[in-house]
Every structure is written in structure tokens, then in C-alpha cells.
Amino acid sequence: MATQKSTVHKLRRVYVWEQPVRIYHWLNALVIIVLIATGFYIADPLVIQSGKEPSQRFVMGWVRLIHFIASYIFFFNFLFRIYWGFVGNKYANWKQFIPTSRKFFKEMWHVFKMDILMLRGKEHMSVGHNAMAGFIYFFTFIAFLVQCLTGFGLYASMSSSWFPKLFTWVPYMFGGDIFLRQVHHWTMWFFILFAVIHVYLVFYHDYVEGRGEMSSMGGGWKFIEEDVFTQNKELPNAPKS
């Protein structure tokens, strides 16, 4: 039946995303979706008709409550992820996101040539996320920080709780709430654009590499070609977990 024998890859199972990372990822995804949906409503509320008396209605109140609860989860989840960047495995380590070596930039350039410019050459087969992705995630962490600061900064004046009060200085630094609100709104669009590109690229890697990119955030493992595995293993300065 088979006319020509195909190259058969031996795949090695690697536990890339630990369970806390996976929980963080999906909790983050859920909370961001909730925050964006409620955020859009808060910014430009739709008229929801009902026969209820105004005193019986609390639509905006509930939406804001959900937004605030989600923002607390988002913040502490983010904090947890930073912590995990120091204690987690090598693919969760902060060095994956912040360039600390020439190798990082070289890999980024290589990924840019192969996956974005689609030049011909040796494909880049990373194990965790590639350097380019890691660096983009670094920007998302900055966006997380911006959203937390502006969001809790806006929330500070209407809360008597100690936690939001820690952010009272934020509006003062930027001269008031109006600018803060704008920044909060723009940054949300970064999240939307990021999510679209992120999901696309996961599909892309799964399609082009065929090593379980999509399911890795479910079970935690990726299936790495034997030669890629040995190649990475042999690197003398590979970081120890």
C-alpha cells in the first residue's frame, strides 16, 4: 500500500507545563474573558429592557461586582505566576521571558525568520515556548501590571478596603482618573489582540510541528522528536531545573 516509506519520528514525552502553570493558564483565560466582557459593558452599557422598577434592578451593580471579583482573582493569579517563575520548572522560569543572554536574541531572530518571514532553512523546534513567544509573554506580564495598577487605582477611591487603598497613589501620579480610565481601556485591546494571535499560533504550531502543542496545556506534556531531545540534552550550558 505504502509507496514510499515516510520518516518515522520517535517522540519523547516531556512534561513541559506543570499542573500549577496549567491551572494558572486556564484560570487566567477565564478571568480575562470575564473581565473583557464586563469591561465592555461598564464602558458602554447596553440597554437591557425589563418590566422591573428601577429600584428592583441592579444590572450595572452586578456587572461591576463581577468585574471586581474577577480582578482580584486576576491579580492574585498573576502574583502566583510570578512566584512560580522562581520555583517552577525550567519552562516556567522567569528566564524564559526576560532575555538574559545572546542565545535568547539569536533564537528570537531565528524564530522570526522561520515562522514569521517564512524563510527556508532549518526549522526551529523548541521544547517549551520559543524565545519569541517568551518575550511576547513578557509584554503581556507588563500589560497585566498596567491593568492591575490602573484598575485598582480607579477602584481605590470607591473602596474602604485596605487592599485597593494601596493603589491610591496611582491616579495622583497620572493627574487623575480620566487618563487612567483611558489607559485601562486601551490596554484591554492589547489583551484581545494578544488572545487572537496566541490562539492562532497554537493552531499553527500544532499543525506545522505535529507534537501536541494544543493538548500540552491540558495534560502538560509535549512530544519531542528524539533528535531534538538529544540535541538539547547535549548542550553543556543548559539550565538545570
Binding site: P45, V47, P54, S55, F58, V59, M60, S157
Partner: peptide, 15 residues
């Protein structure tokens, strides 16, 4: 906004 007498309408989602 916090001292506005129309605030209940804001919370009710009536604009």
C-alpha cells in the same frame, strides 16, 4: 459620581 443623586439609575443600568 459617588454623591450623585442619579447614581441608583447608574447601578440599575438605566441610562
Amino acid at each position: 459620581h459617588d454623591t450623585c443623586y442619579r447614581r441608583p439609575y447608574y447601578d440599575a443600568g438605566l441610562y
